[in-house]
Simulated scan of single mutants.
Amino acid sequence: MDRQAEFAALIDQYTKGEGVQETALPRVALFKLSQPSEPMHGVHEPALCILAQGRKQVIVGGNIYFYDASQYLVVSVDVPVVGQVVDATPENPYLSFRLNLDPALISELILEAGLAENTGRDTPGAGLSVSRVTPELLDAVMRLLRLLDNPRDLAVLGPLAEREILYRLLQGPDAARLRQIAQADSNLRRVTRAISWIKQHFSEPFSIETLAAEARMSASALHHHFKQVTAMSPLQYQKQLRLQEARRLILIQGSDAASAGHQVGYESPSQFSREYSRLFGAPPLRDANRLKASPEMLLSA
Rank of each mutant, 00 (worst) to 15 (best):
R190D: 03
M217K: 08
R163Q: 13
F206M: 06
L145Y: 01
A161M: 08
R177T: 12
F202K: 07
G172V: 05
S218P: 15
I165H: 08
R179E: 11
R143Q: 13
E162P: 06
I181D: 06
R193C: 05
L170E: 05
S207Y: 01
M142W: 01
Q183D: 13
P173E: 13
R216N: 15
I198S: 00
L148A: 10
L154K: 08
A194N: 05
Q171I: 01
P173N: 04
M217W: 11
E162R: 12
D149L: 05
L222H: 12
I208S: 09
H201T: 05
S196N: 11
R152S: 06
P205M: 01
M217S: 04
D149N: 09
Q200L: 05
S207Q: 07
L144Q: 11
A219M: 10
A219K: 15
L166A: 08
A221H: 11
R143W: 01
A212P: 02
D149P: 04
Q180G: 12
N150G: 00
A184P: 07
L211T: 02
R163D: 10
L148R: 14
V156W: 11
M217C: 06
L188D: 14
N187V: 00
I195D: 03
L170C: 11
T210K: 07
L144A: 05
V191D: 03
E214G: 01
A161R: 05
L166K: 04
N150P: 00
A155D: 15
D174S: 15
T210H: 07
A212M: 05
L178Q: 05
E162C: 07
Q171H: 10
A161D: 11
R216G: 12
A219D: 11
A161K: 03
L160N: 12
S203Y: 02
A219N: 09
R190F: 10
P159Q: 00
L178N: 09
Y167W: 04
A221N: 11
L145F: 10
P205Q: 07
E164T: 15
A212Y: 06
L178Y: 06
Y167M: 09
P159L: 01
L188T: 10
E162G: 07
A212F: 08
Q180N: 12
L154M: 10
